[in-house]
Write a protein that binds this DNA or RNA. Sequence first.
DNA 1: CGGAAACTTGATTGTACACTTCAATTTGAG
DNA 2: CTCAAATTGAAGTGTACAATCAAGTTTCCG
Lengths: 196, 196
Amino acid sequence: MTRYKVGLRTREKILAATRALLSEVGLEGTTLKAICDRAGVLPGSFYNQFPSKDEAVLQVVRGAIRAVDPNPTDGEDESLGELVEAYVKFITGDPVVARIYLQIAVGGGLTDDRMGARVLRHHRRRMERFTSALLRSVPDLDLAEAQRRVEVTLAALNGLAFQWMLEEGGVDVDGHARRLLEHALAGGGPGYPAPA
Amino acid sequence: MTRYKVGLRTREKILAATRALLSEVGLEGTTLKAICDRAGVLPGSFYNQFPSKDEAVLQVVRGAIRAVDPNPTDGEDESLGELVEAYVKFITGDPVVARIYLQIAVGGGLTDDRMGARVLRHHRRRMERFTSALLRSVPDLDLAEAQRRVEVTLAALNGLAFQWMLEEGGVDVDGHARRLLEHALAGGGPGYPAPA
DNA sequence: CGGAAACTTGATTGTACACTTCAATTTGAG
DNA sequence: CTCAAATTGAAGTGTACAATCAAGTTTCCG
């Protein structure tokens, strides 16, 4: 069962092709044939490396999520700025996760629903991390208020992602993000009056 | 060529079923069979009423969009408040358009791409209407600044829509929207410092 | 080397379902 | 009563997809 080098390279080629396809054409266009064509590999080889198509997709998404999360384990000292920056990168940089995210939320999908769970979990965790980062920066903030601020900030970021996908480059995600950050920290947060 | 009552009722049943399916399972799950089963109609009847499946879908979406746009023709005196309110209704009320919107942006799709164009057009027009409504309320506002405010406000609203679909009811769209509105009008807009 | 295990090939299977059509039949309306 | 509209429901057509497999080739360890 120990793999040969050739096999490992095949594996890589498949994952690369899958990644490219996911970001270019989304879940729907990422068929087995497309992957194989792109990777220069035949179906038989594919199934020698992966037990199923979903498995390859899952692996790519897992990887992309991990690549976007800074310090996935200990989030004790991450700043809101870092988090926002990472999120912007996630939107504008690697389109894989962003697209899958939305696609899943919107109802298209993988056969397997592990993905849905994964996305939701990820979303929730992001929420928590943003909130505690905000509280670390502004300790005298009501928890509920912090949560609301984070909620809108994230919503705005997600919305920017949406617009970004609608027409790539059609919106200044980075600029908006910076200002959203300022306001989450300083005054009332995005769309909020400063607490009385 | 004059239709019988029965035919008109069949037509309605089909449209109702299509609408329900679109909001429940999205474009992907809205197959001909699903529509027919739901409507209690056989395929032959369907094709007696509609020339194609896409036509029925198109009609539902068109209707939903129209239902959500206040004063679709003359937008001379609509307030930002009205627009925001309508948008919230669009998110939380009838899920058809919201879902289709995202789904198209994200790459799923109809065979026909009239839909993509329609959605993009709609999005752009919303942008314009929000901007001019904002300028009407705050006339001494830089155009670029107004556009930026609208951009973030809409992004935030879209993001809220996204969260809403991720877990229906999991976010207070209405509350957030109200505050977003306040700030677009009053101070710096969502995430923006007041202009210097 | 030698040979077992890993890998590749690519035609093929099987499935699923999707959209559409049609001839026969029933229904509705003037 | 008559004719078009409407319905029936089976059948057609097509596609696209994931997955398999037997046969041949390559890798690499001992």
